[in-house]
Amino acid sequence: MTSLTDLREVVDVVIGVDTHVHTHSAAVVDARTGGVLDEITVEATADGYDQLVEFADQHAALRAWAIEGTGGHGAGLTRHLDRRDEVVIELDRPQRAKRRNGAKSDPLDAIRAAREALSRPRLGGPRSGGDRQALSVLLAARRSAVNAATDAQRQVFSLVIAAPESIRERFRGQKLPAMVKTAATLRVHLSWDVETTTTVIVLRSLARRARGLAEEAAEHEKALKAIVRSWRPDLLEQLGVGPIVAATVLCAWSHPGRIHSEAAFAMLAGVAPIPANSGQVTTRYRLNRYGDRQLNRALHTIVLSRIRYDETTRHYVARRTAEGKTTREIKRCLKRYIARDLYRLLEHRPIMA
């Protein structure tokens, strides 16, 4: 679904849905008045989704669905509605402080979702499935493997530091990767005491776990690269954009028309400056700490790569430094420019088969 500007101009009712693991609560809200017309709670199953559609058919044919968690608890319902060509609007789950008087219940959250969709100046549909969802799954799995491998490596290092001297001397002078390699090949001797034996067994187990997880992460990265190459190989041609960065950008962007402008894409990435003006001061801005932090990190990776390898970027950094800008401020500016360029590339360059 492309971006909408005002639901009240195109639908009679908005059906807000608060999604959970086992049940979904829905509320039908009149698009003109904001009044609640009906409510229902169904099971989060195929039969429950059919029941929701039948419930919606009792009220109006011109309708839109405002769903919380379209990529999580509401993914099944979103796919079900998409197959029926229903209009689906993606909403984030609310922060507790934003709920009226702290009130919380599933029906109330469903009503809030519908009214929030009616009040927003711009609306967008949920992220697409297919290649984008495959990239999202692979990114999550790779991130988990990398984090677990890093934890295992740190544990190897800590155990080596506290190990008996007869074991510790085998690792002396080694960097962490070499430590992991050495630990993975350790053998137990019958003459060792229980402390030494146990330490060696655990070191070997952790090292082999770290190596296995590293191999798993590499396989996920290989699969990511294959999908990106078949979907948007033009991204990989950009300086500083590798398969992980490209996959992260594609997961956030999803499909043409979902994000209505380059400014919105910058806001999504958390690189749009937030005005912090007061009185006659009109040139002050605050650091944006919101948005998709994974996308923000991907842009930061591109910036670091270009500062190191791109002559034009280095000249820009030198010029802005001479103007009195700090390194952090310069990186923020670069991230904003890169977000603009990536958005234009994604939206306007023909997608290659």
Rank of each mutant, 00 (worst) to 15 (best):
residue 3 S to P: 09
residue 4 L to Q: 11
residue 7 L to H: 03
residue 29 V to I: 10
residue 30 D to Q: 07
residue 35 G to W: 07
residue 38 D to I: 06
residue 44 A to S: 14
residue 55 F to K: 06
residue 62 L to V: 07
residue 64 A to T: 06
residue 73 H to G: 03
residue 76 G to Q: 02
residue 77 L to Y: 02
residue 89 I to R: 00
residue 92 D to Y: 02
residue 93 R to V: 11
residue 98 K to L: 10
residue 99 R to F: 04
residue 100 R to K: 09
residue 100 R to C: 03
residue 110 A to G: 09
residue 114 A to E: 10
residue 121 P to N: 06
residue 122 R to L: 07
residue 125 G to R: 03
residue 126 P to F: 04
residue 137 V to G: 03
residue 138 L to W: 00
residue 139 L to I: 05
residue 147 N to E: 13
residue 152 A to W: 00
residue 156 V to G: 00
residue 157 F to P: 00
residue 158 S to W: 14
residue 170 R to H: 13
residue 171 F to D: 01
residue 191 S to L: 11
residue 193 D to C: 06
residue 200 V to E: 05
residue 212 G to H: 15
residue 214 A to I: 10
residue 220 H to N: 12
residue 228 V to Y: 11
residue 236 L to R: 05
residue 241 V to Q: 01
residue 254 S to A: 11
residue 258 R to N: 08
residue 258 R to S: 09
residue 261 S to V: 03
residue 266 A to F: 01
residue 266 A to Q: 02
residue 271 V to A: 02
residue 273 P to N: 09
residue 273 P to W: 07
residue 281 V to F: 05
residue 284 R to C: 08
residue 292 D to Y: 07
residue 299 L to G: 01
residue 307 I to W: 11
residue 307 I to T: 12
residue 310 D to T: 03
residue 311 E to P: 07
residue 312 T to D: 14
residue 319 R to G: 13
residue 320 R to I: 10
residue 322 A to W: 07
residue 335 K to S: 09
residue 340 R to M: 12
residue 344 R to I: 12
residue 347 E to G: 04
